[in-house]
Design a protein around this nucleic acid. Structure first.
Lengths: 231, 231
DNA sequence: CTGCATCCGCCTCGATACTG
DNA sequence: CAGTATCGAGGCGGATGCAG
């Protein structure tokens, strides 16, 4: 903190400007966590293994200064507060989801050291949602990934994801976070996951196929099982 | 290069995986340049001031190894080749444009040391294009930013950007790169830029307003000038 | 106990010099 | 022209300390 000289690309361009704000290590992962829900400092520290306490504090202070994040006061003591995104930070959601969608095709095999969090599955569903594929039926699909429950709501040809259970789901998917990411990355078909038992689907076969299409998924050889007449 | 240990977030998540590939310094700016057009090593070095020769070589090698970039052989000597994006790398376009669009609202005043390149204006137009706002008319708008010429083609309710001049433009915008970015970031209205002479617009006023809407721009008090009856 | 600040070893970065 | 080799500076990661 001597000269205050910050490393910058010095380019008059939107992408370079965005990277001057977000390009440093851990910054976009902090944004990801806050896109899921507001968090306390300790929550972020626990959900981002390896970040180091000084870096997290420094990044948060910078993001607050730049107006992407603000502190909301929780009741209790003076130091009890949560970090949450401002409107400006929230505006990053489509861009971050775009990167996440692209990266899902590159997730490798699950190693022993890798961190897995069910909350990330919620962002994955948002990232996979293809608005063009929204079915004409008004219906809801519910997802239970470990301890996280969220849903997709299709209404008047528009699909959106939301936290918590669905009001009246026509399909329910129950699985664990690792299986969910593997399916999203195309490394595992919903059919195969159902056979192995790591995914449990409740709902009509047509509904399941509609939901898979909405998420850009190839369900696997489900049709064959349902209609053995076809090759 | 002893252990080959690469710094990774070790998170089973699409965004973390994407950042393991793209999150290091300069990487996304290299992708940006290749999204505009293929480049030689020397071109990239010239268009990315401050990168350093070793970093550029290292990043390119990594991107080639990961399958995002490939080398295309140009005629001449054996060492004459250009770098271009693979299909996988090209798939980053929407995500990168999303970040660029977000960042445009944060570009500050143009400083003396800042680099400005007219080629970036092409990506800016792509990033600003709002498919929802495509007019019903089939028409083309041409842009001449310094030495770069590109256009928007609206056809059957779909708008797309392309390099080179338009076949039959109903509007032509002539400006410099700095002015273009300032307009895109909302720091300058097309109207004000026209008054100061840094932007020259040729075309019917209705066409200009349609083009501004397509790019998410507030044209400025143009209506007042065209119809002085209104306040 | 939570929310940071300080310190230290190491790795990445940026710039220059050098080679095919 | 297209990189490789080298080295100082600074960002990062982990442990520890401390204040409210």
């Amino acid at each position: 903190m001597t000269t205050g000289s910050k490393r910058t690309y010095n380019q008059y361009c939107g992408l370079a400007t965005a990277l001057d704000l977000l390009g440093e290590r851990w910054t976009l992962l902090i944004i990801r966590e806050l896109l899921i829900r507001p968090r306390r400092y300790g929550d972020l520290l626990a959900d981002l293994p390896g970040i180091g306490t000084n870096l997290l504090a420094e990044r948060l202070k910078f993001l607050v200064d730049e107006g992407l994040v603000r502190q909301r006061n929780l009741g209790g003591g003076s130091k009890r507060h949560a970090y949450e995104l401002t409107e400006t930070g929230e505006a990053l959601r489509p861009a971050v989801l775009g990167l996440a969608r692209w990266g899902m095709d590159f997730v490798g095999d699950l190693s022993a050291e890798a961190t897995v969090r069910p909350a990330w599955a919620f962002l994955a569903v948002e990232a996979m949602l293809d608005p063009e594929q929204a079915p004409s039926e008004n219906e809801q699909y519910e997802f239970r990934v470990d301890d996280q429950v969220f849903h997709i709501d299709v209404h008047d040809g528009t699909a959106s994801a939301g936290a918590g259970p669905a009001d009246n789901p026509v399909m329910t998917a129950i699985t664990d976070a690792a299986t969910f990411v593997q399916i999203g990355g195309g490394r595992l078909s919903p059919f195969a996951a159902t056979v192995s038992g790591s995914l449990v689907l409740e709902g009509d076969i047509d509904v399941v196929l509609r939901c898979c299409a909405l998420l850009g998924l190839d369900a696997g050889p489900v049709r064959v099982a349902a209609a053995p007449a076809a090759v």
